[in-house]
Design a protein around this nucleic acid. Structure first.
Lengths: 340, 340
DNA sequence: GTGAAAGCGCTAACAG
DNA sequence: CTGTTAGCGCTTTCAC
C-alpha cells in the first residue's frame, strides 16, 4: 500500500488516470461497469489518494483549524473545551475534514500560528474561540478573509460569522426563576468584565430584575473569573450585602461560592439559594445538587463546523449567525422543591 | 499575499527558484548578500510557501497527529487531557509542526480515521493515547509502521516506542508514605482493570505493602473507574472492611470517596486517611486538602512530541522508551501533619 | 463517457 | 555558489 498512485490503479483497471480520479471524486460521467472495475482495484490494492497532491491540484485541503487564542487561558481548566472539541471533531469526521489544533500560548506562538493558519494552502477554514474583548489575533484572522467562524459572540461583530449560546436569555430565565421563587436580594457573581459571555449573562441578570420591577443593588454584583476560587472569594465579598439568592455565571464559581457559604455557617438553599451555569457533570453531586443552566456544548461545536463548511463551500457572504438555546436544570440549590 | 509563488519571489529578487528555495530552507550554499536580498523580498511581499506543494515535493508534511482512541472515553471528563494537549501543542509550535487532532468516537470513525492517519501523505508521525488493553486501533497503528509514539505504556509493548509516568513507583511511594505514618489497614480504589495506568498503580500498592511486610487484604481492594462517582461507591463497598487509610488511583475517585467518608460520619484523616493521584487544581481546596501524586502532564506531552520527532528524523528503530518521575504532594488528608 | 495533457508550487539532484 | 531540469500525485480543461 505504500507508494501506490492513481497511475498504478489506472493501469491495473485498464483505464486512464482521469477516469480513476472521476471515480474517486464521485463524478457522474463514468460508465457503471467501469466505475465498478475501478472501485474493485481500489479495494484490493488498498489505494488511498495522496493528500498533498490532491490539495495542490484542487486548492482544497479538506482541513480546518481550531484556533484557541492566548486569551482563552481557561482551556486548561474549563471542562467546556473537551466537550466543545468533541462536537467539532465529530462534525469533522462526518464531513470528511481533518481537524488541526492551534493552541496559542505565547506571543511568539501567536505570530507563528497566524502566519501558518492564514495562508490558504494549509486550511480551508478556521474556527476560532472568542476570548477577551479586543483580542488582536481574532481581528487579524477576520481581516485575512479566509472562511472564519467565531465560537462565541465577538466583541465587535463587524461582518463576521459566529455562533453563540443565548447567554442573555439563559441568565434572564435563571434569574427570573429566582425572582418567581420569591427571593428579594438576588446577587450575581459575574464572569470577567472583558468576556462577552460574562457580559451577556450579567445583562440577562439585570434585565430579569428590571423587567420584574426589582431594583438593582450594586453591592450584590461581584466580579468573578469563572474559577472555583474566584467564586469562593466573590461570596466572601458579597456576604456583607446579605444576598438570599445568587446567580453565578459559571458552575465552577457556584461551587466555590457554595464552599464559602457553608464556611460562613449558612445553609443552601434556606439561607442562600444559588444557581450556576454550565451543568458540569459533577454539580449534580454537589451538596445540595446545583440548579444550573445547561448549554448544548457538543451541538454547539458540531454546528460551528457546519457553518464553517457552509462558508467554505458557498462563500463567506453574508455572515452567518446562530444563537443556541439553553435549558434551566432545576435541582435543589435554588430551593424550588422546598418552596412547593 | 494570495497566489504568491516561489517563482514570483525569484523574479523580484533576480535569482532562480532554487535559490529562493534554499533560502527558505536554510541551506548553506547561498552567498550572504543574495540571501539577504531574497529575504527582503520575502519580507516585503509577505510570501509564504504553499504547504501542499512543499509536502508533495519533499514527502514531509510537517504535521503530526494526536489520536485518541474510542477507549479513551475519559477525554471529556478528565482534566488530564487539556494539560496533555497543551504540552503537545507547545512542542509542535516550537518544532514547527502542525498538530492534527483525531478523536475517535464511533466504530465508523475508527475505520475512517485509521485510513486517514495511516497513509503517510498526511502525517509524518502519530501520537496515540493508550486506552484499554487490547485496543484494536493501536495495534493497527503499530503495524502500519508510520512513526508512532504511544502515550502511556501499551498492554503489550512489542517493539513500540512509548512514554509513561512511572505509575508503579508513584503508587509505591504514596502507599509507603501511609505505611510509614502507621496506618494498619490501607485500602486502595483502583482504576479499571483493563487500564495499564490502573494496573501499574495497583502493582505499586501491592509492592509497598509486601516489601514492608504487610499482608494484603482483598477486601481492601475495590475497583473504581477513575470517576468521582466511582470513588463514592467504591468507598461504600470498602467501608465494611474498615480501612484506616486509602490510596485512590485518581483524584476524582479520591474526592468521591471523601464525600462517602463524610456521609458515613467519619473524619478525614482521623478515621480514614486518603491519598489521591493527579493533583488536580481543585484538590488543594478540598476539605481537608488532598495529599496526592503530581504528574508532570505538560512535560509529558511535550516530551512525547520530542520523541516522535526523533523517530521521524532518525528512524523508528530502536524503540524509544521514557519513564517520567512523579512527586508526592503532602497536604492534610493523609494525616502527616497531625502525626508530627 | 473517456483520454491526453497541462499544470498546482515546491524540492532536489545534477550541471556548471 | 547558482541555475536547469525533472518530477512529487493529483485535478481539470479540452478534445474526441
Amino acid at each position: 500500500m505504500p507508494g501506490l498512485t492513481l497511475e498504478d490503479v489506472a493501469r491495473q483497471a485498464g483505464v486512464s488516470r482521469s477516469t480513476v480520479s472521476r471515480v474517486i471524486n464521485d463524478h457522474p460521467n463514468v460508465r457503471e461497469d467501469v466505475r465498478k472495475r475501478v472501485q474493485d482495484v481500489i479495494q484490493t490494492t488498498g489505494y488511498h489518494p495522496n493528500a498533498a497532491a490532491r490539495t495542490l491540484a484542487s486548492q482544497r485541503s479538506w482541513m480546518i483549524g481550531l484556533v484557541l487564542p492566548r486569551s482563552v487561558s481557561s482551556f486548561f481548566t474549563d471542562p467546556y473545551f473537551p466537550r466543545l472539541t468533541q462536537g467539532i471533531a465529530q462534525a469533522c469526521n462526518q464531513y470528511n475534514y481533518t481537524l488541526g489544533l492551534f493552541l496559542v500560548s505565547t506571543k511568539e506562538d501567536e505570530e507563528e500560528i497566524f502566519l501558518r493558519v492564514s495562508r490558504k494552502s494549509l486550511l480551508d477554514g478556521i474556527l476560532v474561540q472568542s476570548g477577551h474583548t479586543g483580542d488582536e489575533l481574532i481581528d487579524r484572522l477576520v481581516n485575512s478573509n479566509i472562511p472564519l467562524v467565531i465560537a462565541g459572540r465577538p466583541s465587535q461583530p463587524k461582518n463576521t460569522s459566529y455562533i453563540d449560546v443565548d447567554n442573555v436569555n439563559a441568565a434572564f430565565s435563571a434569574v427570573s426563576h429566582l425572582v418567581r421563587l420569591g427571593y428579594r436580594r438576588i446577587g450575581t457573581i459575574t464572569g470577567p468584565a472583558n468576556n462577552t459571555a460574562g457580559i451577556d449573562r450579567k445583562e440577562g441578570y439585570l434585565r430579569a430584575l428590571t423587567e420584574r420591577g426589582r431594583s438593582v443593588d450594586p453591592s450584590l454584583i461581584v466580579e468573578g473569573d469563572f474559577t472555583e476560587e474566584g467564586g469562593y472569594y466573590a461570596f466572601q465579598t458579597m456576604k456583607a450585602a446579605c444576598p438570599d439568592a445568587i446567580f453565578a455565571a459559571s458552575d465552577a464559581m457556584a461551587i466555590g461560592a457554595m464552599r464559602a457559604i457553608h464556611e460562613a455557617g449558612l445553609r443552601i438553599p434556606d439561607d442562600v439559594a444559588i444557581v450556576g451555569f454550565d451543568d458540569l457533570p459533577t454539580v449534580k453531586l454537589a451538596e445540595p445538587p446545583l440548579t444550573t443552566v445547561r448549554q448544548p456544548v457538543y451541538q454547539f461545536g458540531f454546528q460551528a463546523v457546519e457553518i464553517l463548511i457552509d462558508l467554505i463551500e458557498n462563500g463567506i457572504e453574508p455572515p452567518r449567525r446562530v444563537m443556541m438555546a439553553t435549558e434551566l436544570v432545576i435541582r435543589d440549590s435554588c430551593g424550588a422543591s422546598r418552596r412547593k
